[in-house]
Design a protein around this nucleic acid. Structure first.
Lengths: 337, 337
DNA sequence: ATGAAAGCGCTAACAC
DNA sequence: GTGTTAGCGCTTTCAT
């Protein structure tokens, strides 16, 4: 059912019907009423595709994530979609399954279908990213690149808090399980190194590990091979992998080893013991990203944009505690089972 | 950059350019080469919006889920999106956050933007669902409705296996924590009741509970108030909630109470102890749903479709074991801490 | 306040 | 094989 049919039923011209649905204030009250009636009777809804073509904008936004199976990213998508909808935007979602080459392909395919693009942890190179950003409004999450507006969750303070927390509990020998290179890992690493140095702690870095439970399982054994009494993991998935593997090897958490994660999404409260973690403002970040994107779509100049910065906060739960007494050292691990 | 500019640069008519991009086989090799060159030089890409309008189809699919924060649904979206992409379809994703009224609104808003719609666990009434299905090709997941093609994960056999497993371990008194009414719950309930009856077990049903960890926490106390030695939970989230709460109350799993879940997505391997669960073929279901949908979009008659049925399978892990010895009954729970 | 007319960029008969 | 010609359904000047 098209605008013309409505027009003829309502006894007005197509343009009037169009106005009723686009700028109702421009139409006389009575006429509008008549048109609305006719439209309702016919079950008319403006065709968004035709509208897009005529208006030159789609009313769609897109988001590309490396893995929507990751709780953090799923919640990001949820927040983004919830924020975009009230503004009338529908959201394309694509998951590149951690493949760099797919990442770029997918993004390029999405460009002409959307008014703007949200890139969460994009895998592509800086050059490619800049190219894309020149094509269409783009906001990146957790990546910094000159002239591309971004929303950053700064986990440096969170990492700092985590290390201070461990120090206060009595830990002097700690290890950070790094993620792959990028803004998020850089923040965590910086907070970790700064603070361990400042507090005079013994600090090691292992990795990088993929942000998955399975990588954490692998990491746990490397941790036990060293002398650390506490672990700061790149994210909660890795932390959970560590915890589970430690449990399997008879190492108690937090009795023998303390573990801290990052994210504070679904996993932290599911793990046993409940994970001490740096909780990230996922929803707020999603909302901020959409707002920023809509600004840019609306014509704001993206080049000068200073990144929106949010911070996480350490939530102390049950996976951290005092280190084992010195005299018990060496008894932990397998031997103890 | 439009088709016309390419045409003039290549020295052909716009239709030829169009053909090159839609049905290349209809164009002479040399001409095609010339057009491709021109297009490449100009950086031309067909505008999908204009194409949609002219062709009368969008090249988009949509999926609406009740909560993408749920691992099961996130993986469903992942699978769907992965299957749709190679066929050139982009995917709209909407999350109605478990709100019935949003569910319908969102779906209706999506209809004109897509060629077909995937509805996972739709909340809307049968009537509304039928209306929607009359508007556009629809495939529902885990819901049955005459004349709407569907993909069902039949968990009846899985539930049966779970109960048999518990019976074999020696359990005689079991409880099912129901989810909200719907196909999934019906299957599980049926398998549970059939099998407990057949094996002469004492069986109780509690609920319904929302499919979340928090509901499982609540459920755990209700379980302890009864006499059951084993719990079949609606899904893994509920099962994890139960386990965690039992641990907090000093009840051992599986020493005192055994717990079984459904889904086998992320949670099962993260829980401590690792969850015995009925693993569902999530990805296969997503793929099947897309294929079915594309068939219908392609003109297949949806009315006669017999639902695609997949089944889950019990994966025995560490959350189930023999029940405590009779003589210890009554000692479990708080008293034991 | 409303109508007429010219597109938005592409496709699809239909001719040649 | 390729070009010509109408649209797809809506928006938007520009008149009136």
């Amino acid at each position: 059912v098209t605008i013309r049919q409505v027009a003829s039923v309502a006894g007005v011209s197509p343009s009037t019907v169009s106005r009723v649905f686009s700028r109702p204030d421009l139409v006389a009250h009575r006429t509008r009423q008549r048109v609305m009636d006719a439209a309702h009777r016919l079950g008319y809804t403006p065709n968004p595709v035709a509208r897009s073509l005529a208006r030159g904008c789609t009313g769609n936004l897109g988001i590309v994530v490396p893995d929507i199976g990751n709780a953090f990213l799923a919640l990001t998508v949820k927040a983004v979609q919830a924020r975009a909808r009230p503004d009338g935007y529908a959201l394309f979602v694509a998951d590149c399954d951690d493949q760099v080459q797919d990442d770029e392909r997918i993004v390029r395919a999405m460009v002409p279908r959307v008014d703007g693009l949200l890139l969460a942890y994009p895998l592509m190179s800086d050059e490619t990213l800049a190219e894309i950003a020149a094509l269409t409004p783009v906001v990146v999450m957790n990546r910094e690149l000159a002239d591309v507006p971004s929303v950053l969750i700064d986990t440096t303070p969170g990492a700092r808090q985590a290390v201070e927390h461990l120090h206060a509990l009595g830990h002097r020998d700690v290890v950070y399980l790094a993620g792959s290179d990028g803004y998020s890992n850089t923040c965590r690493l910086r907070g970790f190194q700064e603070t361990t140095r400042r507090l005079g702690m013994t600090a090691a870095v292992l990795g990088p590990f993929e942000p998955r439970v399975s990588a954490g399982v692998r990491a746990a054994d490397l941790v036990l091979a060293g002398s650390a009494t506490a672990v700061l993991a790149y994210n909660d998935e890795v932390a959970v992998g560590v915890i589970n593997r430690l449990a399997d090897r008879g190492v108690r958490v937090p009795g023998d080893v303390s573990v801290v994660g990052f994210d504070g999404a679904a996993l932290a409260d599911v793990a046993t013991p409940r994970l001490t973690t740096v909780r990230l403002p996922i929803r707020a970040a999603g909302v901020a990203a959409v707002q920023l994107l809509l600004d840019v779509v609306g014509g704001a100049d993206p080049s000068g944009h200073t990144p929106a910065r949010l911070v996480g906060e350490l939530i102390v739960q049950a996976s951290t505690g005092p280190p084992p007494d010195r005299r018990h050292r060496g008894h932990r691990g397998r031997d103890e089972t």
